[in-house]
Amino acid sequence: MDLKQTIIDMMHEVAELTESEIIGNLSDNTLLLESGLDSLGFAILVARLEEELNYDPFTQMEDAVYPSTLGEFHAIYEKLRKKHDSVRIRQLS
């Protein structure tokens, strides 16, 4: 599954819910706070991603280092996805 696309699609969904608008040219360097979502939007994004992916890096991280760019945001999820998937494989086998 393309995690990056999932995140971007979800951002659009949340933007619709919170009546915000995602900027046109999203890139890895885009600052999250300039992407169009406010803090409520991000809170909902994280909650919706948890519902979709079954894991939440923000509640699992030991140091509260919040990402500032879209690239960093994606990286946190990617890192945890590998860990999560390997745990699932172990549970299934």
Binding site: S39, L40, F42, A43, I44, V46, A47, D56, F58, T59
Partner: peptide, 10 residues
């Protein structure tokens, strides 16, 4: 309420 790491609760 659902606990949320960004904003407290949703």
């Amino acid at each position: 309420s659902k606990k949320n790491p960004i904003i407290g609760e949703l």
